[in-house]
Amino acid sequence: MNEVLSTSQLGNDDNVDLVQYLTFMMDDEEYGIEILSVQEIRGWESMTSIPNSEEYVKGVINLRGTVVPVVDLRIRFNLSKFDYNELTVIIIVKVMIDKKTKIMGIVVDAVSDVYNIEKQKAKKAPDIGDSETKNYIEGLINVGDKMVVLLDLEKVLLI
């Protein structure tokens, strides 16, 4: 990974704000969330659906005695639906919503990588397209020759 790069940068300039991001794949796009908010990664499991909930709320699972709601990000982002397979994972994240810490799960196609990312270099999302989805995006950044969409989890999971 970018280990070498990141340490040398740290040595040169303390102001560089390096943040580790976990990235995952959805519909061939790579999305990133701050790694500090990730609690664990689980395989797909069956869950209890919640009556009259939005379509993207797949239901709740039992996480060692805690009831945790799970959101399908594909549906949340209006992407095409995808059948769950053995690569489908639930990323359990901890987010601050309404000043309360909540533990939630997000369903994604597959986990990809971990990058050190300079937050300042992230570009704002272009002002076009699905305006709702755009709100969830914190910024866009290039890692090597790939583009990663950095997500603002708190907005994504404000449900």
Partner: peptide, 27 residues
């Protein structure tokens, strides 16, 4: 009794959740 609101929100018609012997959640 487990709280559903703790990590989610209030759901109409549901007061809470519990975990069954099988490990799955029931409302």
């Amino acid at each position: 009794i487990k709280s559903l609101e703790e990590n989610y929100k209030k759901v109409d018609g549901i007061s809470g959740a519990t975990i069954l012997g099988s490990g799955s959640v029931s409302l």
